[in-house]
């Protein structure tokens, strides 16, 4: 996995091999230039690459949270992974994670964010600003506060049901009957601001002349949006889809506070499952294997993202 490079030692170690033979003075100069990087490399090596490497190893043991297997974990090879891949719970959680990421981030946040960004440009400034501030407010507040607020919104005797009853509709037990729908909508509420800000910045870069030219040629507003605006901001869209995917993949607090993954395992996504296996069922090795799988999926998207952004680094 590419994460092995995280500690920087591999890339740093390459320097003496590939540099042309220079004087001792030059070598000292290079060392002096590298010196300021060492704290960052050390910190990331120990506390970022460390846990990842530890995870790769730990997932191959039967470490437990307490008792004998906590102090003396045994190497069990790929047992945790075979157990994982044959476990209905794992595939269920993987499916729920896919639903959660796909519907709340890739579709929900991106579509609503784009809608808000476009509509804001056509509405009077005060309205656009106030609504924009509300959307950003939901995103700026700490995640756990957002989770409480949304718990209160979706609770059986909460705001949503009170509102439904007020207009004569039947209330529902959102967090119990449709927990996934509740957490998906919650995450749209929580995270749309990011997409809205990204798309707002992207739309500001689109020169208005092109749209005006199309308008003169008789293109409707919808045609202009789909044929001109969208293609022109497609880079921002693909970048944003990957970013929101990566941010949503690790979502724990929102789901943990709203439903604790329940009822049963009906809203248990992979991060919640890893937590439950490790800390409630004391299966550290098994929980770590789940963490590694989640991380691998994240790494895949991260590589895609880095490739997309390659021109900005070069």
């Amino acid at each position: 996995m590419a994460t092995l490079e995280l500690d920087g030692s591999t890339s740093q170690g390459r320097v003496p091999d590939t540099r042309p033979r220079g004087t001792a003075k030059e070598a000292a100069r290079t060392a002096g230039r590298l010196l300021p990087l060492t704290p960052a490399i050390a910190l990331m090596g120990v506390f970022l690459a460390g846990p990842i490497g530890y995870a790769l190893y730990g997932s191959l043991t039967n470490a437990a949270l307490s008792g004998y297997r906590a102090a003396n974990p045994e190497f069990v090879g790929i047992d945790n992974y075979t157990r994982l891949l044959t476990s209905g719970d794992f595939w269920h959680a993987a499916w729920l994670t896919l639903l959660f990421v796909g519907l709340s981030a890739v579709v929900g946040q991106n579509v609503l964010g784009m809608f808000l960004a476009v509509v804001q440009n056509h509405a009077p400034k005060p309205v656009a600003n106030v609504v924009g501030a509300l959307v950003v407010g939901a995103w700026v507040m700490p995640e756990i506060v957002a989770a409480f607020a949304l718990y209160a919104f979706f609770a059986s005797d909460g705001t949503l049901n009170a509102g439904l009853e007020a207009v004569g509709l039947a209330p529902a037990s959102w967090l119990i009957d449709t927990p996934m729908l509740a957490v998906i909508l919650a995450n749209v509420w929580r995270g749309t601001a990011f997409s809205m800000l990204v798309f707002n910045a992207a739309l500001a870069e689109v020169p208005p002349e092109i749209g005006e030219a199309a308008q003169i040629d008789g293109a409707t507003a919808l045609q202009r949006f789909f044929r001109i605006t969208l293609p022109m901001v497609r880079r921002a869209i693909s970048t944003n889809m990957m970013l929101t995917t990566l941010q949503t993949l690790g979502t724990f607090t929102l789901i943990f506070v709203m439903t604790s993954g329940g009822p049963g395992n009906r809203s248990t996504t992979l991060p919640v499952l890893a937590f439950q296996e490790a800390f409630k069922l004391a299966q550290i090795g098994y929980g770590t294997a789940i963490a590694v799988v989640t991380l691998a999926v994240g790494a895949l998207f991260a590589v895609l993202y880095v490739r997309v952004l390659k021109p900005e680094v070069d």
Partner: peptide, 18 residues
């Protein structure tokens, strides 16, 4: 850049063990 994208919450179990 790659590291900044990783879902760090996913590794809390091994971090705890470490």
């Amino acid at each position: 850049l790659f590291a900044s994208c990783l879902p760090i919450t996913a590794v809390m179990v091994p971090v705890y063990a470490l």
